[in-house]
Computed example of a mutant assay.
Amino acid sequence: MTLELFETEAPWREPLAPGAVVLRRFASGRDAALLAAVQAVVEAAPFRHLVTPGGFRMQVAMTNCGALGWVSDRRGYRYDAHDPDSGRPWPPMPAEFEKLAADAAAEAGFGGFAPDACLVNRYLPGTRLSLHQDRDERDHGQPIVSVSLGVPAMFQFGGTRRTDRLQRVPLAHGDVVVWGGPARLSFHGVLPLKDAQHPLLGASRINLTFRKAG
C-alpha cells in the first residue's frame, strides 16, 4: 500500500479489551502541530536516558511537559514538578497535546480527561520498552492516552497480571491507544523498534503518553 493511499484512510476503532481501544489514525491530521510542539518541549527540556532504581540505564530517551513529569533514579520512580537536570519546572503542556488527549479519551468513553503530565519518549532502531504497569499516578480511575508518531512499533498489551496473555498490536503513525477502567493497570510494553524510515521523523518513533498524575 502506498503512503498516498494510506493517508486517505479514515480513522477507525479497534477494541483491545474492556476499557482499552486503539483509535487508528486518530492523530494523523494533527501531526504537523504535534511535532512542532514536541520540538518546542525538547528545546526547553532535552531528551535524556533515565536510570532505574536498580542502576540500569533506560533504552528509551525521554522528557516531560505539563505540571508534573515522570522521573526515575536510584531513589525510585515518581512524579516531580521540576526537571531534575535543570531545576526548572517542566515546559507547559502545549494546547495541541491537551486537546488531543481529551478528544481521544472521550472517543474511548472517558470524558472529562484533563492530563497534567505528558511523557515524551523517543525510540531509535533496537530500542524497546520492558513490560510494565503504570502505577505511579494517584488516581487509577483516570485513563492512559498513548500517541504514536513516526516509525511503526509493535505494542504489547496484556492483563493486570504479568503472566496474562499478551496481544501484539502493530502501531503506526497517528495511532492512539487509550486504556482505563478495568484495563487501567494492564501490563504493556514495546518490542525492539525495527530499522525503518518515516517521512517526517526518519528512523525514529515519538510516543506521547498522557496521564493524570496528581
Results as ranks from 00 to 15, higher is better:
residue 95 A to F: 11
residue 163 T to V: 07
residue 86 S to F: 12
residue 131 L to W: 02
residue 179 W to V: 05
residue 163 T to R: 09
residue 189 G to L: 00
residue 38 V to H: 05
residue 139 D to M: 00
residue 109 G to R: 04
residue 106 A to S: 15
residue 89 P to C: 09
residue 146 S to E: 12
residue 72 S to K: 00
residue 194 K to Y: 05
residue 208 L to I: 00
residue 44 A to D: 05
residue 71 V to W: 09
residue 148 S to N: 10
residue 63 T to L: 01
residue 101 A to T: 00
residue 98 E to Q: 02
residue 137 E to H: 11
residue 144 I to D: 02
residue 22 V to M: 05
residue 3 L to Y: 01
residue 29 G to D: 14
residue 64 N to I: 01
residue 117 A to E: 00
residue 86 S to V: 08
residue 187 F to N: 05
residue 136 D to G: 07
residue 47 F to Y: 15
residue 94 P to S: 14
residue 74 R to H: 13
residue 12 W to Q: 12
residue 162 R to S: 13
residue 31 D to E: 14
residue 49 H to V: 01
residue 212 K to Q: 14
residue 38 V to F: 09
residue 114 A to S: 09
residue 75 R to Q: 15
residue 111 G to C: 04
residue 73 D to P: 06
residue 207 N to E: 05
residue 168 R to C: 13
residue 91 P to I: 02
residue 111 G to P: 00
residue 92 P to Q: 12
residue 25 R to F: 11
residue 179 W to P: 13
residue 129 L to P: 01
residue 152 P to L: 11
residue 203 A to C: 04
residue 108 A to D: 06
residue 18 P to N: 09
residue 210 F to S: 00
residue 61 A to C: 02
residue 210 F to D: 00
residue 171 L to D: 13
residue 19 G to V: 05
residue 203 A to S: 13
residue 80 D to R: 05
residue 31 D to S: 14
residue 100 L to C: 10
residue 178 V to W: 12
residue 127 T to C: 10
residue 196 A to E: 07
residue 41 V to P: 02
residue 162 R to Y: 06
residue 71 V to T: 13
residue 109 G to L: 10
residue 107 E to M: 05
residue 140 H to Y: 06
residue 82 H to F: 14
